[in-house]
Design a protein around this nucleic acid. Structure first.
Lengths: 339, 339
DNA sequence: TTGTACGCGTTATCAC
DNA sequence: GTGATAACGCGTACAA
C-alpha cells in the first residue's frame, strides 16, 4: 500500500501537489494533474482514512448501536441507514448491545475511541431506573458528537429523535377492532418502563373511552416486548377459559408469542378471537396468515435517521428536531370475530 | 477530548510515561503510575484509534461485507461475528451490498481506505461469469489482509472459508422424504451459477440414485434463491395439476415462496405434499407450522468466521483452512404425505 | 525509571 | 503553480 509521498515521487512532484489534486483544491497545472491522476489510477492509490482524519481533525465514520440485529425490525433500520451513509461517503461502525445496558456503555466507549462523527442509537431496554438512564445520557453527552435516537425515546432527552406514532398506533389498532364490531378488547402491554409502551397503552385507553367502552382489567396483560412473556401470558389467559373478543399486541415479538399460543390451543385468529398488532410481522403476510397490524416503514426510518444525523452535523446549533414516522393500518382479517 | 499530551501535563510527566501505563509496557514507578491512572480515570481519557493505528501501523477494525442484512440468516451471522469481535477488542465496519456486485467492489474499496485488519465477506450473488468473479478475487487480493469467505465459496479460492455441508444437506433432505415413504420427489434449485446451489442439487441427485429412484425432470425447477421466483415456479407447477409427492427447497427464501404458493392454493403441506427445506425459517416453528428442514447453527458460523480471521491474522502463512458447518436434520412433519 | 526525538500518512499554511 | 514545513495524536527507540 503506497503512500502519498511515493505517489509524489512517481509523478516527480511534491506531496502537496498530489494532495491538491486529491482534494481538488488550490491551483494545479492541467498537465501535471493528469500525470498524477494517471498514477493514482494505475496504482489504485487510496489515502489512509486514519491519516486523513487525524490531519483534518474530523472523521468519516459514524456509529450505529442496535440492541438485536436478528430482530427484522432493526435489520431493516440498518439497511436504511446504510443506504444513505453509503451515498454520502460515511462508513458505519456497527455495535450490537444484545439489549444489555453494560454492553451499550462499552459500545459507546469504543465509538468514542474511534472518534466517530456521530451516533445513531436505539437504547437497550431495561432503562427503567433513573440511574441507568442517567448513565446512558451522560455517556451520550460525553461523546460530544451528534446523536440520533431511534425508536425508543426517553423523557427530557436533548437529542434528535425519530420515533413512531406510538399513541396513534395504539389508538388506531384498538379502534379498528371496535369498528369491526368487537367490544371486549384487551391488550398485551410492552415494557411499561419504556415510554413507547406507555404511549401505546394510552392510545388503547383513549380509543376505548372515546367509544364508550370499559377496559376489561383482566385482559390488560403486563408484557415486556418479548416472545416468551407474551406466549406465557396468552397461554394462561386461554387457561382461564374466558377470552376477550380481541387483543392489541404491542410489538412484533408480542404478536408472535400471542399467535403461537393461539395456534397451539387451536383457537382461530380472525374468527374465535381478533387481534391487531403494532409492527408488521413480515413472515405472516407471506404465508397468507391473517394478521392485521399498524405498521411503519422501517427502512425509511433508517434512511431518515441518517439524514437527521447529517443535518445535525452541518448545523450543530439548531433546535432539537423530532421526526415522527407515520403509522399505517393494514387490515388483513384478524381484526374480526365471528362470535 | 483531551490528548495524551494534556494528560501528561496534568500528571507532571512526559507523554512517553503516560503511553507506558496506557500500554502496560516498560518500567514505570508505582506511584506515578497511580497518579496517571487516576487522571485517566477522572477525565475518561481514551487514545484516538486513528492516531494509534497510524503510529502502530496496524488497526483494530475489521470489515464485514454482507449482501442482505434483512435476511435473518445474515442477521444471525453478524451477531456471531460481533460477539467474538467484541471480546477481542475489534470494531466492525459494516457494509451492505444489496446483492449488487458493483456495490460490493465499492465496499471493498472503502474498507481498503479504512485500512481494516481483515475482512469477512459473503460474496454477492450473480458472480456467474468468469469476469465478475475475477474482479472480486482481484479486489480481495489487493486488500492484502486476511479474508474469510462465509457461506458462498467459489472455485479455486485461496482464502479461508466457512461453509455449510451443502452436498450433505441436499442428500439428507431428499433422503428424509424417501424414508417417509415418498418416491416422486422434485426440487427447486438455487442459482446454479453458485457452487452452493450445484452442491445441494448434487446431493439430491445422489440420494435419489442411491435409493433407486428416477429423477422426475418436470419437477426440477430452476429457482434462484429468491422468494418471488420460488413462488412463481410453485404456482405454475400447481397449475399443471400434477404434483410430485415431495419437494426439496434449496434455501430459506425458496421455502417461503414455495409455502406461500401452497397455502394460497389450499394445498396442505405434510399431507397433500411433502417438503423439506434447506435452512431453517425461524418464524415457522414459532407458529407451530409443520416444516422440516436441514438447518445449521448460523450464529456459530458467525463466531467461527471471526475466530478464523483472527487466527489468520496471527499466522498469515499457514495453509488455507476450511470450516464446514455441520447440518442438522429437523423433522417436524412436513416430510410426510398422506396420499 | 523517565524524557527526547522521530516517524506514521495526510492536510494546510506559508513562502517561493 | 509549486514545494517546504508544521501540525494532527500517538508509539517507541534511544539517551539520560
Amino acid at each position: 500500500m503506497l503512500t502519498i509521498h511515493e505517489v509524489a515521487e512517481l509523478a516527480g512532484v511534491s506531496k502537496s501537489t498530489v494532495s491538491r489534486v486529491l482534494n481538488n483544491n488550490g491551483y494545479v497545472n492541467e498537465e501535471t494533474r493528469r500525470r498524477i491522476e494517471k498514477i493514482i489510477q494505475e496504482h489504485q492509490y487510496k489515502p489512509s482514512a486514519a491519516a486523513v482524519s487525524l490531519s483534518k481533525q474530523i472523521g468519516s465514520t459514524i456509529g450505529v448501536v442496535i440492541p438485536e440485529i436478528d430482530n427484522s425490525f432493526f435489520g431493516e433500520v440498518l439497511k436504511g441507514i446504510n443506504e444513505v451513509a453509503d451515498q454520502n461517503g460515511f462508513s458505519i461502525i456497527y455495535c450490537d448491545t444484545q439489549n444489555n445496558g453494560d454492553k451499550e456503555l462499552k459500545a459507546l466507549s469504543a465509538l468514542e475511541q474511534q472518534r466517530v462523527r456521530g451516533v445513531i442509537i436505539t437504547p437497550a431496554m431495561g432503562y427503567g431506573d433513573r440511574e441507568s438512564v442517567d448513565k446512558l445520557k451522560n455517556a451520550l453527552a460525553k461523546l460530544d458528537v451528534p446523536v440520533v435516537i431511534v425508536d425508543r425515546d426517553f423523557d427530557y432527552s436533548q437529542w434528535d429523535t425519530i420515533y413512531f406514532q406510538n399513541y396513534e398506533s395504539g389508538y388506531i389498532a384498538t379502534e379498528s377492532m371496535i369498528k369491526a364490531g368487537n367490544t371486549k378488547i384487551g391488550i398485551i402491554q410492552g415494557d411499561m418502563q419504556l415510554k413507547i409502551a406507555r404511549e401505546r397503552f394510552r392510545g388503547y385507553q383513549d380509543a376505548m373511552a372515546a367509544n364508550g367502552l370499559e377496559i376489561p382489567e383482566q385482559y390488560v396483560l403486563k408484557g415486556d416486548f418479548t416472545i416468551d412473556t407474551a406466549y406465557a401470558l396468552t397461554k394462561s389467559m386461554i387457561d382461564s377459559k374466558e377470552l376477550p373478543e380481541g387483543m392489541v399486541t404491542c410489538n412484533n415479538r408480542t404478536s408472535i408469542g400471542f399467535i403461537k399460543a393461539m395456534i397451539e390451543s387451536g383457537i382461530t385468529i380472525g374468527s374465535d378471537i381478533a387481534v391487531v398488532g403494532i409492527d408488521n410481522v413480515p413472515m405472516l403476510d407471506v404465508l397468507g396468515f391473517p394478521f392485521s397490524c399498524v405498521s411503519r416503514d422501517t427502512i425509511e426510518m433508517g434512511r431518515m435517521s441518517m439524514k437527521l444525523l447529517m443535518e445535525r452535523m452541518n448545523k450543530p446549533d439548531v433546535q432539537r428536531s423530532i421526526w415522527v414516522a407515520p403509522c399505517r393500518l393494514e387490515l388483513n382479517g384478524s381484526e374480526k370475530t365471528n362470535r
